[in-house]
């Protein structure tokens, strides 16, 4: 990676009720790169993303986006930084009270001050780019299947054409065919926008497909980072156990949610 990384994390720590979840996370993500963070449930993958987005405040460490420090930044600076991000949530997190098209247009109207009409035109384009026609736009989220909700969530995440897109468990709960369709859409959208992508997932098929690099989070730290092509020869017992889904190995699954 050359030049200033798009995202740089250094010594990121976060604890909940005295229990450490992140314990010194260091990560660089280059411009236009797609990095997938893998790890078991409760290892702090979502917490890492939420810290970068400013939804959670880290206990210590630094988060830089385009060289700008976000930890301790003012509300205005944080708001400006957030305008660079798009996010696809695990359950899509569509607004129940709004139609599909208003969900997709939301960030354009509220965040970027576009007129309702212009935002709806863009929203229709984005829906088309994820394979949904305009008749879907008038439906409400509760009328959609899980796969369609993910597509709408993806259209909403890319509507403002962000520099950085986060994907939180993009294929969880989907059948293998729909999961592959979502993976293809993620790759297409990220490529078309030239965006930087950070994804978190348990799904190794998805991780291998959408990433340039993979990082594994365990015990609150990134224990292995490397190109996707090298993960099978990582030489790391934790990574080996995780990617092959073995019950036996150094990783002991925790029984309680963090």
């Amino acid at each position: 990676m050359t030049g200033t990384p798009k995202i740089r994390l250094r010594g990121l720590t976060k604890a909940f009720g005295g229990k450490p979840v992140l314990n010194g996370v260091d990560l660089d993500v280059g411009k236009g790169e797609s990095v997938v963070i893998i790890g078991g449930s409760g290892t702090g993958k979502s917490v890492t993303l939420k810290c970068i987005l400013g939804l959670l405040e880290p206990d210590s460490g630094s988060i830089e986006v385009d060289g700008q420090q976000l930890v301790g930044a003012s509300a205005d600076a944080l708001r400006r930084a957030r305008a660079k991000f798009g996010m696809l949530f695990q359950g899509a997190a569509l607004f129940d009270s709004l139609s599909v098209i208003d969900n997709v247009a939301f960030g354009l109207v509220q965040g970027h001050g576009q007129s309702q009409a212009a935002a709806r035109r863009i929203a229709l384009d984005k829906l088309a780019s994820v394979g949904l026609d305009k008749s879907v736009g008038e439906l409400f989220p509760s009328e959609l299947s899980g796969g369609m909700q993910k597509r709408v969530g993806l259209a909403r995440a890319i509507a403002t054409e962000p520099d950085i897109i986060f994907f939180d468990e993009p294929t969880t709960g989907l059948d293998p065919i729909m999961a592959d369709i979502i993976n293809d859409l993620i790759m297409k959208c990220v490529r078309d926008l030239g965006a930087t992508a950070v994804s978190i997932t348990h799904d190794m098929v998805s991780a291998r497909k959408i990433s340039d690099r993979i990082a594994m989070l365990y015990g609150g730290k990134l224990i292995w980072t490397g190109p996707t092509a090298q993960i099978d020869g990582s030489g790391n017992d934790y990574v080996e156990q995780f990617i092959h889904g073995r019950a036996e190995g150094p990783i002991k699954m925790q029984l309680r949610a963090s």
């Binding site: 987005l53 939804l55 996010m87 695990q90 569509l94 939301f106 960030g107 965040g111 970027h112």
Partner: peptide, 22 residues
């Protein structure tokens, strides 16, 4: 509460909208 549990409030923040204000 449902919006919180389903991450809709977090989604608002990522769409440059202050949840308190909205």
């Amino acid at each position: 509460g449902t919006m919180r549990v389903t991450e809709q409030i977090d989604a608002l923040a990522t769409l440059s909208t202050n949840p308190y204000k909205y």
